[in-house]
Nucleic acid binder design. Structure first.
Lengths: 156, 156
DNA sequence: TTTCTAAGGTCAACATAGTTGACTTGAAAG
DNA sequence: CTTTCAAGTCAACTATGTTGACCTTAGAAA
């Protein structure tokens, strides 16, 4: 989880024939996701971190004092899958964990200053990509993008 | 690659506080990608297949007689990583591989009827999701979505 | 007080998807 | 005949996830 920093490929969009009207949209979703996360992932890799660490930092930044159980639910992964990246972040002192005064059962997670810094920088890379794209299409285009993505996200 | 069919979680979008203006967009990209691929992945799982198999089928459907080398380049993965899913598809007779008459070195890949059927169904699930979302926002919204995604995809 | 329950933590085994590196094979080209 | 190159294979590894089983801790209830 923190050793090699492999490939770092840029992977230009391959242009292949379209069989259907919507093929371009399918490919754009794939390359869009990769395009948004690529620079953030490269930054995170320099710290020996990756996507799951970022997801944890992202959520804790927005829900300070979140419990482990809630975090598991929000991230949609198992407790065991959360365990390793979470412990790495605690070891690296990007997160603190304390028991709440009243609800002594749960632990409350917070970001340290280092954690906040890292979360911000990684998320900034992603926001920068989105922001530049939004600038090209104006506020109405951005709103339409949000509407489409919302419909897709809620389609299940 | 073809045994258990785990979790199949639906994972509703978690609504967490927004620290920045564009946080909603970051989250929509994540949930959008998942929303588009979820039903296709569920279908593929019933066949013991998954995303990498679909990616192979998708490309070969659109570039019949593609060589292994080109496929590697288009998919952006290593020859060794391609090997297992590709062989499974050959064993399952979803793909055929033959040597070309003139360029006898390279192998040419094609979909069998079964391969075409599977590729179509899986891609249909994805197109259906996108199509319904596009219907809600109209052609101008769809065009804006494409423009934003194109800008994001090409941002590196 | 003892017992039950819920949250958290840990360990083992496994699946999947990728990586490098080191080969072999088979056909084309010199 | 030898070299070159595409393809194929084997091993070892990393990373991210999954189940299942089990333990610890602490609050709640009997």
């Amino acid at each position: 989880m923190q050793k090699t920093v492999p490939h770092a490929a840029g992977l230009h969009r391959a242009s292949i024939k379209k069989l259907h009207d919507l093929d371009a949209a399918l490919e754009l979703m794939y390359y869009g996701w990769r395009g948004m996360t690529l620079s953030a992932d490269q930054y995170l890799a320099t710290l020996g971190l990756s996507r799951p660490h970022h997801r944890i930092l992202y959520v804790v930044a927005r829900q300070p004092d979140v419990s482990i159980g809630s975090l598991i639910e929000i991230l949609g992964i198992s407790k065991q899958a959360l365990n390793r990246p979470l412990n790495l972040l605690l070891e690296r002192k990007m997160l603190t964990s304390r028991r709440s005064p009243e609800q002594h059962r749960s632990k409350l997670l917070r970001l340290t200053e280092a954690g906040k810094r890292t979360e911000q920088r990684a998320s900034d890379y992603e926001r920068k990509v989105v922001s530049e794209a939004f600038d090209r299409v104006g506020p109405r285009g951005a709103a339409a993008w949000m509407a489409v993505m919302g419909a897709i996200a809620d389609s299940n």
